[in-house]
């Protein structure tokens, strides 16, 4: 079956990350993962931190995104991400360092150091873990 394609755009405040025709997108919605094919009904949803996969002809590419929005309108999908990174661009050692830092911070917060913001540290840890996992998958 020749699938129809549609335009997928992934934009972050700092740059346009993806702008291409795809057949399928799968995104980490706040209410669970969602897949989008061509001619999807218009929708607007918030996204969680997670993996965004997209592709055509069975070739899938992956992005890590850290929250944002996804809009479907007129057969075009726009993802407004707070930050997005292509999986092959992830720097493993940096992600590893970020994970360690976040873990230390959480530990500190649990031992009663009020200067450390535990919510932020947990978010940072989540981001780091996501990156690591995505990058390992890719290897």
């Amino acid at each position: 079956m020749a699938n129809q394609t549609y335009l997928l755009e992934v934009v972050t405040p700092e740059r346009v990350v993806v702008n291409e025709e795809v057949e399928v997108t799968s995104a980490p919605g706040t209410e669970g993962s969602l897949g989008i094919l061509a001619d999807h009904a218009p929708m607007l949803t918030a996204l969680n931190i997670g993996l965004l996969e997209y592709g055509k002809h069975g070739e899938n590419k992956k992005l890590t995104i850290t929250g944002g929005f996804l809009e479907v309108a007129n057969n075009k999908v726009t993802v407004l991400a707070t930050a997005a990174e292509k999986v092959q661009e992830i720097d493993l050692s940096r992600a590893e360092a970020a994970r360690r830092r976040a873990e230390q911070r959480i530990e500190k917060a649990q031992t009663g150091n009020s200067e450390v913001d535990i919510d932020r540290a947990e978010m940072a840890l989540k981001r780091a873990l996501l990156r690591l996992e995505a990058a390992k998958h890719n290897q």
Binding site: G29, T30, E31, L34, A41, P42, M43, L44, T45, A46, A73, N74
Partner: peptide, 8 residues
């Protein structure tokens, strides 16, 4: 756009 579905 047309009417949207919103999630959540």
């Amino acid at each position: 756009g047309p009417l949207y579905e919103f999630e959540p």
